[in-house]
Design a protein around this nucleic acid. Structure first.
Lengths: 225, 225, 225, 225
DNA sequence: TATGAATGAGTGTTCATTCAT
DNA sequence: AATGAATGAACACTCATTCAT
């Protein structure tokens, strides 16, 4: 799955084909609901999403959604939490501590870009959650902890870069983090309006490659001495 | 209205207090509907917004909304178009051509940040429009033209900067534009989830000031030789 | 306008093209409203008809409808009355008293058929009025009188036919009248469902001609000795 | 239920009195909705009918109507189809093939008259369907087939009548059918306007009896040698 | 006479959720 | 555990009619 090529998110196919015989498999049922809900919430937002549609896509009885998730709102909360945990988990697998600081940072920028590209629903879900003032995420200690680890990771890259004589010191890791996310997120989030007002297809393979290089340059220039 | 202080958007108070005596004033009625609709769509999204609520806030009979705007969807379209035209119009008033390139660029970054800060509904509306694949904006020639002028403006700043020996050449104006928007937009759009996962109030006055400086630095480093 | 050929009703074009300059011409305004209302009520029924649409078609301000006709219901009443007076007036012009009884009767059958064919809205209006238990027609002395004359006319034809030795006596003129109307009305009223369930186009020119001959035969056999 | 007496249609009482305890009985729910809808559509037409009223009369939750019938329009379609199938089914029960041709024909005329008299909503529904250009009936193969059988039945009576030396030959069965229906349908359909313009109560028991005899005579004279 | 704005009660339809089995 | 029926509140939108000019 090359970066620069719009790859259809795998997430749309998460509904399992197994277990169509309607045997009782709570875990599979739950997973199917979550997967269907993620896509529905991502494409329609919290109020636009329909419980009926989620049930249909998940191929479960609507009643099951209430059985396992209590309410549409709580289902949304579970989806949001899982989305945050998933991206943090993916980042941890990068093993950035084995790379030199500059490479680590570039890898992080590439990863972030690719993740947004491959998981467009993540962006939509985060937007929805902010539209609702993050009230579903507030209680989630797990997500906070996962992010704490992540900021620590970036901080250690920055420290390493200073030691290696490559990076400026006193760079704020949170704002750096935010900027790394921002330059990918905004471009992809606003790809529809952007393609119209800038009169070019922002999702064109070449445009995507060019954007990634632009972003890497932005971040490296920002941190370099 | 100092930058760095979250100032409540003026837009929420656009409903006119005049003309409550139900005299006939089509222009005022239309304006009130548009203002109320902007806030409703911004806070709840297209599907979450309620036509009844818009009518109540605008202090007009619900029927008037259909009289002047035909449908909820078309009302949304008008709101989106106006939002884009408004920001482009505000940018034009900056008179950036009278400044040296570096100052012009910094002014643009400051303006963009301040505009997003003062008009948080703009960000929400753009998100909504992208959730709907920009189908409402597609037909709008006016918006496209306004943006064309804007890109031309940035290009001329870049050209000037190269002539003045301050900027690198070959910088893509569209990607620069996008990045200038991105670093403000993302921070403010995700201020709720951001404040939680980064365990700090991103909307704190100090944090806002710090972010603006960070953004100016990001852009200036990006374009400098 | 040959009998047996479906001729488009002239009634649909009654809206005057004159007086578009919005000068004040009450009579023309009234006539336009009545013509538009006739078509609207005929095609959509009383509840299906829209006052707005009538105003648009009549090219008058909606308020005028209320000015001249008080209410939708009363407008319908005027339309119904006019429809009945129109058909009775047309019948009188046939001058049946100058023909021998058999020819007069055949002419009447032909006329009735052709009138329904050329004025399909008449049938629809009568249906609508019966759906509403003829409550709009109840007060109309004019219509009752016009019909009284008409029944007298048929009675005189029957009398003449008996004198001429062509017709049976003791034929009930009211039931004969009703049957003459029925055999044309039903066929044309139910032309859509009829064409489906009988699997042939009942409005085909040949089918129409055949039906008219069938009807003439039905009536003549009925009255003949 | 003597012919000649206006007997209130049994259909208005189809709503079941059983099962008021809100137990689950989909079939009963559906049947109640169909029965209520038939009366509502018959008395008010398609646009005049109110879904709320249907729900109230059927004593079901309005949502159930959409659950089982999708839309008002589709509910109307089901009602229309059922109405056509019902009358054809009733005709088949007459066992006309066991009678001599003349008796069979007279029986058919009597039956048709009585059916219209007992089921006045059938006439109204057919009118409504024709007002809408029979668009709901178009797709119904069942109805077409049922009618095909019916026309075949009439044809066989005509053939028998010719063999028996009672009827003329070359009589068109479709036009005969239409006329048999027409002479009853028109009289009853237009009973309200008719009673006014003819200045007598067409629904008076004596008038009804007289009309039936008149109709029988009309048809027998038409087919006789 | 004529007009366009304004209104309130309603109209078909939808939705998240609960009930009965 | 799983299902399909059932519900009531709400929703976008419509309509005949009236108001203000």
């Amino acid at each position: 799955m090359k970066i620069g090529l719009l790859t259809v998110s795998k997430s749309c196919c998460d509904i399992e084909r197994v277990n169509l015989s309607r045997t009782r498999d709570p875990e599979s049922t739950k997973r199917n609901i979550l997967a269907a809900a993620k896509m529905e919430f991502a494409t329609k937002g919290l109020s636009g999403a329909r419980v009926d549609d989620i049930a249909n896509v998940a191929k479960v009885n609507k009643r099951m959604i209430y059985h396992y998730f209590e309410s549409k709102e709580n289902l949304f909360k579970q989806v949001i939490e899982k989305a945050y945990l998933d991206i943090r988990e993916a980042e941890l697998k990068l093993n950035l501590e084995h790379l030199d600081a500059k490479s680590a940072l570039e890898t992080l920028v590439r990863f972030t870009w690719k993740y947004y590209l491959d998981n467009p629903e993540f962006i939509r879900l985060v937007n929805s959650e902010n539209l609702h003032h993050a009230r579903h995420l507030k209680a989630s200690k797990e997500v906070v902890q996962a992010n704490r680890n992540y900021v620590g990771l970036v901080q250690s890259i920055l420290d390493r870069g200073v030691q290696e004589g490559e990076f400026r010191d006193q760079i704020d890791p949170v704002n750096l983090n935010i900027t790394i996310a921002a330059i990918g997120y905004y471009y992809l989030n606003n790809r529809f309006t952007g393609s119209i007002i800038f009169e070019q297809d922002l999702m064109d393979s070449e445009a995507l490659d060019k954007r990634l290089e632009f972003n890497i340059e932005t971040i490296l220039k920002l941190v370099s001495r």
